[in-house]
Write a protein that binds this DNA or RNA. Structure first.
Lengths: 189, 189
DNA sequence: AATAAAACGGACTGCTCACTCCGCTTCATG
DNA sequence: CATGAAGCGGAGTGAGCAGTCCGTTTTATT
């Protein structure tokens, strides 16, 4: 029980774990969360046992994928925060989030299912809310977004826009108009 | 080939069919479309064979329930059409549809799934679009709703509002603001 | 009341899916 | 290299579900 007698992790194990996450990201995005895990293992060119050794339950795999997506979301948020005009930043953020959801059916479903409230994803949820809050607060202070919305609303409202493929930009524009304070006029497009 | 030799349908058969539809309406509304058909048969106090004799597949049962819901929807629409002010009629219609969706998870899911495009429900869909079109057209002519939306958009947009329990009124208000033509002011609440 | 058609219920079938078991392979280490 | 532990794949297991079969009961009719 002396010094660290831990071996270096095997190269193939590391490679397979990465393949699994990549496959899961792709398959969940394309087919939604209801696909069989076997499809993911097949896509990763790996046995199902290897999948379950890395992710003991299907939910664990979903968590890993959502975490990856949330990181993308945070990047979208950070990029939006660099925009000087608070209204434009807000708009860019919503468009970014919306496009992520349009492309990723799994992410969309996860946000609407009970999964998002599971303890395993609480950190992710907090991160999403924090970045949304920053961008929203700036826009509200600048008077370009109504005051009676919070960051929790953003996910639901944007999902709406993302729910019809090919129409999400139009829906988002309608939503943005609705989010303006009464009397404020639309930005010049 | 002579006169009508058709017997009168049996009383118990009629009764059971009604019980099944009632049970299905309730269970789909509460639990969504993913519940086992056995749960519906149990609620109706009927064997599963009786269920499948009336509705050969689960989808057939869903169709029957959706049809019932669409009839409620048409009533909501007709009531809204009686309102003189086109803007108020539109608003009342959206609120009515939204409340229906909030209370009926099955209906909500059906609208978002591939089911709604199945041939068995085409009639229903047409009916929904027709009533939406009437109310929408009046509101657009009166200049209280932007011209670049159609009746197909209404379902998606309203579903958005219905997606968070306890917040649908607030979301609907935001949506209604977004649906106003640029420059039009909100109605006095 | 007698009868036969119609309807009934619930055990059963076949399928899919999440998850496990175990004999075999591959890697890190001396 | 030799070796044994870590990792591997895929057949197997059990649960849950849509849909079927069939012996029994209920109904309308004479």
């Amino acid at each position: 029980m002396g010094a660290s007698t831990t071996r270096r992790p095997r190269a193939d194990a590391l490679r397979n774990r990465k393949r699994l996450i990549d496959a899961a990201v792709a398959v969940f995005a394309e087919q939604g969360l209801d696909v069989a895990v076997a499809a993911i293992a097949r896509r990763a060119e790996v046995g199902t046992a290897t999948l379950f050794r890395n992710f003991p339950t299907k939910d664990d795999l979903i968590y890993a994928v959502i975490e990856a997506r949330v990181n993308e979301l945070l990047e979208v948020g950070e990029r939006a925060l660099e925009v000087e005009d608070p209204g434009a930043a807000f708009e860019q953020f919503l468009f970014g989030v919306c496009e992520l959801q349009v492309r990723d059916r799994g992410f969309f479903e996860a946000i609407h299912s009970r999964l998002i409230d599971e303890p395993g994803l609480m950190e992710c949820k907090k991160g999403m809310l924090a970045i949304g809050l920053q961008i929203l607060a700036r826009a509200q202070e600048a008077g370009v977004v109504r005051a009676d919305v919070g960051p929790e609303d953003l996910g639901f409202l944007v999902s709406a826009a993302a729910s019809r493929e090919g129409h999400h930009e139009r829906y988002l524009r309608i939503l943005l108009d609705g989010l303006r304070p009464a009397g404020a006029s639309a930005l010049p497009s």
